[in-house]
């Protein structure tokens, strides 16, 4: 069962998601291309409102009205293009092929039912015949995450702590043997020690079960901890992506640089941490032409006002910036260090 070869690859191609507002349809995600290699953990970081969660929901084709996927594709191995899925086949794919751990998983359990009953509901909805086996599997997973399976299954939501609920959420996402798992803010609202535990569990379960994992977060620390690859989102676009270590160690996009500069160091003066000037764009204020980041950018050029920077491969990473490519990443590294 734990076989790395079952991990599906995911190719998001030129995905655009728009929300219908008074001012017309505004893009929350525009032209995002991202590839999740089979068996990898990919982290997506960005400020609130940068389109992370919308991107994650697109993997389930679960963007809620007034939002809709207006273009692009999400190809998942063994499932095809999710954007084209409708009705029953889409419902069956959720949970069985794609496990989703929701933002604020603490509130993702029905307050009126025990966890066990919700598990059985899940099993029945997906036509699982062997409910006994499902429960056994759930107990095993919970045990694996350091919980007493029998007790947890017999508990209501209010009888579990935040960290326990988060683990229950992970269990429900995995119990139907999904091999693509999306975690939306898996550690938000948890204390540091629980965060560390959850991250360790994510890592371990990922390896044991041979998953392809996508972690959405605003916490760079979380990404540094678990992700193999990292994608940085800003204003609905992926501005930089590449191997985690390389991106964090030597960021090339000005936004990534700014983010990393803003992190206070353990050693040295606090004053060295520098906040990014300006504020992130909202759906209504995000520029429609030119670079979305130019208003806050230290390396702004004339071309940024008129042309949207294309996402170009620079070695092992992809960066969307006019300034990158003219200067070498090596130089930037010095600047940061």
């Amino acid at each position: 069962m734990t076989n790395a070869s079952t991990a599906p690859g995911v190719r998001i191609g030129d995905l655009t998601v728009v929300y219908k507002t008074q001012a017309g349809e505004l893009p929350a995600v525009s032209g995002v291309s991202l590839e999740l290699a089979p068996g990898s953990i990919t982290g997506v970081v960005g400020e609130s409102g940068s389109g992370k969660s919308t991107l994650a929901l697109s993997l389930l084709n679960a963007v809620q009205s007034p939002g809709r996927i207006s273009g692009g594709s999400v190809e998942i191995d063994g499932l095809g293009d999710v954007v084209g899925l409708r009705g029953e086949s889409l419902r069956k794919a959720r949970g069985r092929h794609i496990g989703y751990v929701f933002q604020a998983a603490q509130n993702s359990l029905n307050p009126l039912k025990t966890v066990g009953k919700q598990l059985l509901d899940l099993g029945r909805s997906h036509g699982v015949d062997d409910l006994r086996g499902l429960v056994r599997e759930a107990k095993e997973l919970l045990g694996r995450m350091g919980l007493d399976g029998a007790r947890v299954l017999d508990s209501h939501q209010h009888e579990l702590s935040g960290g326990m609920r988060q683990r229950v959420g992970i269990m429900l996402a995995l119990v139907l043997n999904a091999h693509l798992v999306v975690l939306d803010e898996p550690t938000t609202a948890l204390d540091m020690i629980t965060q560390a535990t959850i991250l360790r569990i994510i890592r371990e379960v990922h390896e044991e079960r041979g998953l392809t994992t996508l972690v959405i977060t605003h916490d760079i620390g979380v990404v540094a901890e678990v992700a193999d690859r990292l994608a940085v989102m800003y204003g609905g676009r992926i501005v930089e992506q590449g191997p985690t270590g390389a991106v964090l160690g030597a960021p090339s996009h000005p936004y990534t640089k700014g983010l990393i500069k803003a992190i206070p160091r353990l050693v040295g003066s606090l004053d060295e941490a520098r906040a990014l000037p300006g504020r992130p764009p909202t759906l209504a204020t995000v520029p429609t032409t030119g670079c979305v980041f130019r208003e806050r950018c230290a390396e702004r050029m004339d071309v940024c006002d008129s042309d949207d920077p294309p996402a170009l491969a620079h070695g092992d990473r992809i960066v969307a910036c006019h300034a990158v490519g003219t200067s070498e990443p090596a130089q930037l590294q010095e600047e940061v260090a």
Binding site: R91, K92, R94, F102, Q106, L109, D121
Partner: peptide, 21 residues
């Protein structure tokens, strides 16, 4: 609410969501 969104995300049917959740 979160648990309804979660139920949808885990692929539970609409009848189930309306009737049982």
């Amino acid at each position: 609410r979160g648990f309804i969104e979660a139920a949808r995300g885990l692929g539970l049917s609409t009848t189930h969501i309306v009737g049982r959740e």
